[in-house]
Design a protein around this nucleic acid. Structure first.
Length: 821
DNA sequence: CGTCCATATCTGTAGACAGCATGTC
DNA sequence: CTACAGATATGGACG
């Protein structure tokens, strides 16, 4: 079937596809057309990666737009959102407009309503529904990429509920779900009332095999001799073999999957010995430039190690890397400059990075819950293998699992090569998931009674899959109880029906996109300190208070999730002695609220990913816990009796990291001290920023909009956001002034925004290392009348003072963490 | 007495969404 | 109830 023969697409699209080289549709695409994607039929396409799934989605969306509709493309990762956007933008020539909306990037709120195609993450779509984005009603086509992720325990339920909501809002909605080949695609199709297109077909052949001894044994019965000399690494030999196999004049790149960050790094180091000697002079030059760029992203050891490996054409890839690191590596690997990437599973599910050969080195991964090394899911291994075969470059892709003995080889064949992927199973009936979604469902008006709620939940995959309807109802009831007890929902029993409505705070929590338990934790902590400090404000916050007070009374049981409210005497631990001399301790109630207290509060919330306690950390943080006991908001669990103490310490470690960041500690110090990578630091800071912003809103509810708590939270948030001490807050708020410039200006004697307007220009210029343009911009943003730097000489002493004060080397030109995004 | 290698012991373990309002060196 | 690779410490043989 030729693209020009398709009907229902915008004018010129068929020809454009042909020009792109699409002479004939792939069999699964053809099947999708026959199933009616172009006519608005819903469809589940369960096909391998890189077999043209995206085109199926495009056909659906473009034909929907041609009929005057609007399409939404749901992605699982932010990085994929930009990738898809770029891909879809080629239709702008045909009058199709594209917009993106993710947590950190919005192509302008209102403007989205005018876009034909919107790309967003599932969480963002959920949030947009909760906040009543008007264009949701206009959607006629929704595409869900990687739907098999509904199986994911933490994020799957969001996708599931979001699809159910979209379909309820708009019963005629065309739903196109793209899935990996899974065990039960038919069930997904049944759930979505969709046609099913299932296929194993791939445009590039994939040969899967197991290497053992001196050869790879492929699934088709063929063998490839790859002898491993004594003492030589199996992986290294396979990577070398792929590189030395010159087909189409190109040595093939490899992707090596391992099971930990550390393994990824050490593997990359070792494989550098394989890739290094095979580089051309030109490649070496370009890699040196790339390495310099990598070093510029961050000055941590991680960054340095990565750059070292990259100079030899090898790289590692895991979540400890900063986002820039990752995209630099992905790009250079796609451009065939980097010959080999050793990666954790980040890369298996992330952006498109095909390789000539995929080596699955580790097939087991540590799992704390499991209590040891757990074999990877079949689906996961299939996804890794699916990365083999670069379109247009390779005649076929090779995926190789490694076995060290014959028994393992047999097991790998049985377990992965011959096996079908597991069936997808909904994880919706877990309490944390329902807690969030039940509140949101009620708050945004999808249900107003218990019966209506259960009816709505009938539209989820969970309901389609389970034969035990009672379980969902039971979990729902316990969640309703929790939400009511914490004052997020009101329940009224009248006759046989139980009506549900969200309270003011319930609506707020839903819109803030907080886990209700996070909100409860934060409210609890904030109320604790406000109640002690400021009884007068109580009246203003009565709305939020009463509910919870009533809830307290209703709840006698010690449910750990509820938190305990009464802490006797918040200031019994002596003076809280924060590092900030600027805070007026005496007589200022907000001084009871220290940044550490707030960082700990948000860190012990379920929305913050836990930092690991390593050996020795227990003692370290137990000590800190006692030293700074007075700063914590809420009750400190007992070291000996309370199982929550461990979590409390883990949160304390996170809080300390944030405190260090807000104390201008260099990122390499932080990385070393907490055993994390630059990506982790940035992630923590980002999450804290988000949660503190939410806490600010909650504090306004508890303490009144101008309460001390609100101000304290805002200050703590800004300090994390800018990564500066209290004294630099004013300066760092000026546009173009960040962590480093603020510190240099301050050391040169320019301490406030007002100083910037008055200060000697020579001093300012000196502190900014003689950058005239930058200095002018900053003065302008600070509101100076005459920002011109014409004829000003940089003050040498200002420059010297600034350099000495900032503590890092001169002229390194290194970006700090605060520079990301 | 220092070096090198073989063996025992210890240690630590994948991932990444959201709000809000615009910009670092 | 469950593992295992890499880093580090330990110890012995050797020149």
């Amino acid at each position: 079937m030729q693209p020009t023969a398709l009907s229902g697409l915008p004018a010129g699209v068929g020809e454009a596809l042909e020009a792109e080289g699409v002479a004939d549709l792939y069999p699964p695409q053809e099947a999708a057309v026959e199933a009616g994607v172009l006519d608005g039929e819903s469809l589940v396409a369960a096909v391998p990666t890189a077999s043209g799934k995206t085109l199926i989605a495009e056909l659906a969306m473009l034909s929907a737009i041609e009929r005057g509709g609007k399409a939404l493309y749901i992605v699982p990762l932010r990085a994929l959102a930009s990738e898809k956007k770029a891909e879809f933008e080629r239709w702008e020539d045909h009058g199709v407009t594209v917009g993106v909306s993710t947590g950190n990037y919005d192509s302008d709120g209102e403007w989205l309503a005018t876009r034909d195609v919107i790309v967003a993450t599932s969480e963002k779509v959920d949030s947009l529904i909760r906040n009543g984005a008007p264009w949701i009603d206009d959607l006629t086509c929704v595409v869900s990429d990687e739907v098999h992720l509904v199986d994911d325990a933490s994020r799957g339920p969001t996708l599931e509920v979001t699809l159910a909501k979209l379909r309820q809002v708009n019963p005629g909605l065309q739903t196109v779900a793209l899935s990996a080949t899974v065990g039960n695609a038919d069930v997904i199709a049944e759930w979505l009332d969709a046609e099913l297109v299932e296929s194993e077909w791939r445009p590039i052949d994939l040969r899967v095999g197991v290497h053992f001894g001196n050869a790879i044994n492929f699934d088709d019965g063929s063998q490839r001799e790859v002898p491993v000399d004594r003492g030589e690494e199996q992986t290294a030999r396979l990577v070398a073999d792929a590189l030395d196999t010159e087909e189409e004049g190109q040595g093939g790149s490899s992707l090596v999957f391992v099971n930990s960050r550390r393994n990824a790094e050490s593997s990359a180091r070792k494989l550098a010995d394989v890739t290094g000697p095979r580089l051309t002079v030109d490649e070496r030059d370009r890699l040196r430039e790339l390495a310099a760029e990598i070093r510029g992203v961050s000055d941590t050891d991680t960054s340095e190690d990565l750059a070292d490996a990259v100079e030899d054409g090898s790289a590692f890839h895991h979540a400890g890397l900063a986002a820039e690191h990752r995209s630099l590596i992905e790009g250079a690997f796609r451009d065939r400059l980097i010959k080999c990437v050793s990666a954790t599973p980040t890369l298996a599910a992330g952006v498109n990075t095909p390789a000539r050969r995929v080596v699955v080195r580790d097939w087991r991964r540590y799992d704390g819950e499991f209590g040891g090394m757990k074999p990877l899911d079949v689906l996961e291994v299939h996804q890794m293998c699916g990365r083999a075969g670069r379109p247009g470059l390779d005649p076929y892709g090779e995926a190789v699992l490694l076995a060290s003995d014959a028994d393992t080889m047999d097991e790998l064949f049985d377990r992965y090569v011959w096996a079908d992927a597991e069936p997808v199973r909904s994880k919706l009936a877990a309490e944390p998931a329902l807690r969030t979604h039940v509140l949101a469902t009620v708050a945004s008006g999808f249900a107003s009674t218990r019966g209506g709620l259960l009816e709505f939940l009938e539209n989820t995959l969970y309901a389609t899959q389970t034969d035990d309807a009672g379980r969902l109802a039971a979990v729902t009831d316990s969640v309703l109880e929790y939400l009511a007890a914490n004052g997020f929902l009101e329940r009224d029993r009248e006759g046989g029906t139980e009506s549900l409505s969200a309270t003011g705070i319930g609506h707020t929590v839903s819109r803030l996109y907080l886990d209700p338990m996070s909100a409860a934790t934060m409210i609890d902590g904030l109320r604790d300190v406000c109640a002690v400090d400021d009884a007068a404000v109580e009246g203003a916050a009565a709305g939020a208070y009463e509910r919870s007070a009533a809830a307290d009374a209703a709840d006698d049981g010690e449910d750990p999730g509820f938190g305990t409210y009464s802490r006797v005497g918040g200031d019994d631990g002596g003076e809280t002695d924060a590092d900030d001399a600027d805070v007026d301790a005496a007589g200022d109630p907000a001084s009871d609220i220290t940044p550490l207290g707030l960082y700990h509060l948000v860190s012990r919330t379920p929305d913050m990913y836990e930092l690991y306690l390593k050996s020795g950390d227990r003692e370290t943080y137990t000590e800190i816990c006692y030293e700074r006991e007075a700063e914590f908001l809420g009750d400190v669990p007992s070291e000996y009796e309370d199982v929550r103490f461990e979590d409390w310490l883990a949160a304390l470690k996170t809080a300390r990291l944030l405190e260090d960041w807000a104390d201008e500690v260099d990122e390499d110090r932080i990385a070393e001290r907490y055993g994390v990578g630059p990506g982790d630091i940035r992630g923590k800071v980002d999450t804290a920023e988000w949660l503190l912003r939410a806490a600010e809103t909650l504090a306004a509810d508890v303490d009144g909009v101008d309460g001390d708590a609100v101000l304290a939270v805002r200050r703590a948030r800004k300090r994390v956001e800018y990564g500066v001490r209290e004294q630099l807050l004013d300066l760092a708020g000026v546009r173009d002034v960040g962590r480093k410039r603020a510190r240099r200006l301050y050391e040169a004697g320019v301490e406030t925004r007002a100083d910037l307007r008055e200060a000697d220009k020579g001093v300012v210029l000196g502190a900014l290392r003689g950058r005239e343009r930058t200095a002018e911009r900053i003065l302008e943003h600070a509101g100076r009348e005459d920002p011109s730097m014409d004829g000003i000489d940089a003050d040498r002493s200002a420059s010297a003072a600034a350099t000495a004060g900032s503590g890092d080397g001169d002229d390194e030109g290194q970006a700090s963490l605060g520079d990301f995004r």
